[in-house]
């Protein structure tokens, strides 16, 4: 069953530029049902065998799409998210990096009454191994299994997934939630989905410096999660006041430090990997029945 997407997901691509086309092809190759692309002014054409529509609403009408992946460049990305929501799609995954905070703050607030779930922006996407690939992850390193993976980072997600797969521990769904200050789906949302998913038996959570999402997740895990959770927090040696690549990865005013996040997680019963090379191992120790 997994979460967010499976073999029945019908995916459209908003923003059929170089990136959008490249990853639409890889998703198709992986077996994902990529049913259309949205590129205003190009409706009626085909790009790489994928039918193109002028709007998300039109694409949904014609294809019955249930999910959208957004590659629209920053100036139009927040608008693309709202277009997807207004068209009534169930899931939008926004890959775009570099959207102004103000745009995302307004878009997120406007989504409050919407039934659409947003993942990202500035995220690598979602993969349900063997079934569906939405976004830019190298799906070949995943393998089907019982562990849900949630991460604020892209490549560090691959590292975690690779470590699990090498230990023979498969994944139910791998989900990058994004490195921006305002994101659609946070750790608690993802944990809630994994807790409710009968096929997920445990969770690996990868956090990083900045904000307080990991601390909030720690509290949530203690009171709401019955499944084992292992974690890693990146940026234990990051200097204060410097933006570490991601817009949201910054220690500001003494807040958002890795040490505080690790302490909060450990205090709430989460096994935290001491080094990024020990993520798989730490999970295997925390959930020996799944290893």
């Amino acid at each position: 069953m997994a979460i967010l997407c499976d073999k029945n997901t019908k995916l459209i691509v908003q923003g059929m530029g170089r990136m959008g086309r490249f990853h639409a092809d890889l998703s198709l190759e992986y077996g994902t049902q990529v049913v259309g692309g949205v590129a205003p002014g190009k409706g009626g054409q085909e790009i790489g065998g994928i039918p193109i529509f002028n709007s998300v609403a039109q694409a949904i009408r014609e294809t019955g799409a249930s999910a959208s992946v957004i590659f629209v460049p920053p100036p139009g990305a927040a608008d693309a998210i709202l277009e997807a929501a207004e068209a009534g799609i169930g899931l939008a995954v926004c890959i775009t990096e570099g959207i102004p905070v103000l745009d995302m703050a307004r878009a997120k607030s406007a989504l409050a009454g919407s039934s659409m779930r947003l993942v990202g922006p500035n995220c690598p996407g979602v993969v349900t191994p063997g079934q569906c690939r939405i976004g830019i992850m190298p799906a070949q390193i995943t393998m089907p299994g019982p562990v849900g993976v949630i991460s604020r980072s892209g490549t560090l997600t691959y590292e975690a997934v690779d470590q699990l797969s090498r230990l023979g521990i498969g994944q139910s769904t791998c989900l990058g939630i994004g490195g921006d200050p305002v994101i659609g789906t946070n750790f608690i949302d993802a944990l809630t989905l994994f807790e409710a998913d009968p096929e997920t038996k445990g969770v690996v959570m990868i956090g990083e410096i900045g904000g307080s999402a990991e601390e909030e997740a720690a509290e949530f895990i203690k009171s709401n999660m019955t499944k084992p959770v292992a974690a890693f927090i990146a940026g234990q040696n990051a200097p204060a006041g410097k933006r570490m690549g991601h817009a949201g990865a910054i220690i500001a005013g003494g807040k958002g430090k890795a040490s505080d996040k690790i302490a909060a997680l450990e205090a709430n019963g989460v096994a935290v990997a001491a080094s990024p090379a020990m993520i798989g191992e730490t999970f295997a120790k925390a959930a020996p029945e799944l290893a």
């Binding site: 490195g179 890693f232 234990q236």
Partner: peptide, 12 residues
Amino acid sequence: NGAGLAMATLDM
């Protein structure tokens, strides 16, 4: 490549 992995590499 990638901010998260870059931070994790410093940690490593």
